[in-house]
Simulated scan of single mutants.
Amino acid sequence: MSYSTVVARLRVAGCVFAEDEARLLVDAARSPDELERLVTERAEGLPLEHVLGWAEFRGLRMVVAPGVFVPRRRTGLLVAEAVAAAKPGAVIVDLCCGSGAIGAAIATELGAVELHAADIEPAAVRCARRNVEPLGGQVHEGDLYEALPERLRGRVDVLAVNAPYVPTGAIETMPPEARLHEPRVALDGGSDGLDIQRRVITGAPWWLAPGGRLLIETSRAQAPHTAAAFERSGLTARVASSAELDGTVVIGTARGHQARPTV
């Protein structure tokens, strides 16, 4: 199958960036039969990243797989803020890690760190291990903090979180590639989109080192509510945003040794 034929098939399927996608598919295919399979999967709506088996994130190729959340470009702001907040040797936790792209990018950009990633989805954990373990990190499976080893309590310098924050009622308005091919647990943030964020924020003081940072990606509209939840949990909060990346992150700092809630 020629490049021009691939472009034509992708255009018919509604792929906006048909030329770029065709180039990637042609380069990835090791045989004509494999190219046919890749093009068919993409034309049927499977996300390009799932078809290729990787997603570009912060200049890196991150392994992804069907049923695993695909890292978004906007999340690069979360990585940039985390790198700015930490030093080499820091204890980094990527919670709700999905493919582990956030933690892997932070570790790559920062250098030697103690990296941990955790997710509740077995498929995500399997995928994250392929991205995180080659960097010397560890991946844990479980529900939020329940997944983390006890030895991390009070030691985490940077807790980077891209928890699901889409309001339940808005999921049906998402592009088909997301709502049909990514796990709902990675998208659904409850009625106002903040259910998982609130759980993360409430538990964070147990895990952060004095002066440690909690960073949560959110939307511009949700950011004031996320920041207010930080303050209620005893964290100072500020909001960072990037028009270029269309990203918003709330950063909270632990106020030294503080009384930690019973969660």
Results as ranks from 00 to 15, higher is better:
residue 249 V to K: 00
residue 259 A to Y: 05
residue 182 E to S: 06
residue 7 V to S: 07
residue 108 T to P: 04
residue 247 G to H: 02
residue 250 V to D: 08
residue 73 R to M: 04
residue 178 A to C: 09
residue 120 I to L: 14
residue 138 Q to R: 15
residue 61 R to H: 15
residue 134 P to H: 02
residue 138 Q to G: 13
residue 251 I to V: 15
residue 102 I to K: 07
residue 59 G to K: 02
residue 7 V to F: 06
residue 234 G to I: 13
residue 142 G to W: 03
residue 183 P to Y: 10
residue 259 A to I: 12
residue 222 Q to A: 12
residue 108 T to K: 12
residue 82 A to S: 06
residue 6 V to K: 11
residue 56 E to H: 12
residue 250 V to W: 04
residue 262 T to K: 07
residue 243 A to D: 15
residue 53 G to N: 08
residue 230 F to G: 00
residue 13 A to V: 01
residue 107 A to R: 14
residue 27 D to F: 07
residue 65 A to L: 12
residue 260 R to D: 08
residue 123 A to D: 14
residue 121 E to W: 12
residue 57 F to H: 01
residue 105 A to N: 00
residue 127 C to F: 11
residue 150 E to H: 13
residue 10 L to F: 06
residue 194 L to A: 10
residue 259 A to T: 15
residue 109 E to M: 14
residue 40 T to E: 14
residue 142 G to N: 10
residue 3 Y to M: 13
residue 236 T to A: 13
residue 183 P to M: 10
residue 203 G to Y: 04
residue 187 L to D: 02
residue 116 H to F: 14
residue 75 T to V: 00
residue 62 M to C: 14
residue 15 C to Q: 13
residue 3 Y to F: 14
residue 12 V to I: 13
residue 241 S to T: 15
residue 180 L to E: 10
residue 238 R to F: 05
residue 102 I to L: 07
residue 105 A to K: 01
residue 1 M to G: 02
residue 22 A to P: 09
residue 136 G to Y: 09
residue 21 E to P: 02
residue 30 R to H: 11
residue 136 G to C: 11
residue 38 L to G: 07
residue 132 V to A: 07
residue 139 V to F: 03
residue 135 L to W: 01
residue 194 L to T: 10
residue 101 A to P: 08
residue 100 G to R: 11
residue 219 S to K: 05
residue 56 E to S: 14
residue 144 L to C: 11
residue 191 S to L: 15
residue 39 V to R: 09
residue 92 I to E: 06
residue 216 I to T: 07
residue 157 D to T: 11
residue 144 L to T: 13
residue 27 D to V: 13
residue 169 G to C: 03
residue 210 P to V: 02
residue 177 E to M: 10
residue 66 P to C: 10
residue 210 P to S: 04
residue 32 P to Y: 11
residue 65 A to D: 14
residue 130 R to L: 12
residue 161 V to I: 01
residue 176 P to V: 08
residue 23 R to A: 15
residue 144 L to P: 13
residue 199 R to F: 01
residue 168 T to E: 02
residue 153 R to P: 15
residue 174 M to H: 01
residue 113 V to I: 08
residue 202 T to M: 08
residue 186 A to G: 05
residue 39 V to F: 13
residue 45 G to N: 04
residue 213 R to W: 00
residue 39 V to A: 09
residue 197 Q to G: 14
residue 204 A to L: 12
residue 19 E to F: 09
residue 201 I to G: 04
residue 137 G to L: 11
residue 238 R to K: 10
residue 133 E to Y: 07
residue 238 R to C: 10
residue 95 L to A: 04
residue 135 L to P: 02
residue 193 G to V: 04
residue 69 F to E: 02
residue 193 G to P: 08
residue 92 I to S: 09
residue 187 L to T: 01
residue 84 A to W: 07
residue 261 P to N: 04
residue 46 L to W: 05
residue 244 E to M: 09
residue 17 F to E: 14
residue 63 V to P: 10
residue 209 A to P: 00
residue 30 R to E: 14
residue 195 D to K: 11
residue 47 P to I: 00
residue 97 C to Y: 05
residue 183 P to T: 08
residue 93 V to K: 10
residue 201 I to H: 01
residue 13 A to P: 03
